[in-house]
């Protein structure tokens, strides 16, 4: 099996590697794993609270080339999207874009999981930090 050019490109020049402050209110963090191969992927998003647009995305993945390329691509794709738009990204979109072979499909699954999980974390933070309406006496 050989990697496609796009995978190699993302692997050699991964976009948006890094991390953001996990405790920050406008940052959502997803930490997910693929038990099939023991890969682990962290993906973080910074969301504009007024527009719900993902303005920044970072990732760090420990795994094979396909897992790194999938998460790198995922950060590129979510940037500029609203959280709801980002939720429509499917693993098969990633498979097509990177021409992943069947044995590497779980890498794209991991990336989709990471997006969902980061958004869920962000949403949870928004619920808990929402200003509580003061009940009129």
């Amino acid at each position: 099996m050989s990697y496609s050019d796009k995978v190699i490109d993302h692997y050699n020049n991964p976009r948006n590697v890094g991390s953001m402050d996990k405790s920050s209110n406008d940052v959502g963090t997803g930490l997910v794993g693929a038990p099939e191969c023991g890969d682990v992927m962290k993906l973080q998003i910074r969301v504009n609270r007024d527009t719900n647009v993902i303005e920044e995305a970072k990732f760090k993945t420990f795994g094979c080339g396909s897992a790194i390329a999938s998460s790198s691509l995922a950060t590129e794709w979510v940037k500029g999207k609203t959280v709801d738009e980002a939720l429509t990204i499917k693993n098969m979109d990633i498979v097509k874009e990177l021409s992943l072979p069947p044995v590497k499909i779980h890498c794209s699954v991991l990336a989709e999981d990471a997006i969902r999980s980061a958004i869920a974390d962000w949403k949870k933070k928004q619920e808990t930090t929402k200003p509580v309406a003061v009940e009129a006496k």
Binding site: V32, G33, A34, K90, H106, E112, D113, R116, S117
Partner: peptide, 26 residues
């Protein structure tokens, strides 16, 4: 297993149950 759990999460809109415990991932 990971793939089918994701597909299920997509359909139900629920957060996917990670097959591996979060503290181990951490």
């Amino acid at each position: 297993q990971s793939k089918s759990a994701t597909e299920q999460a997509r359909v139900t809109g629920q957060l996917k149950k990670q097959v591996v415990p979060p503290d181990l991932l951490e």
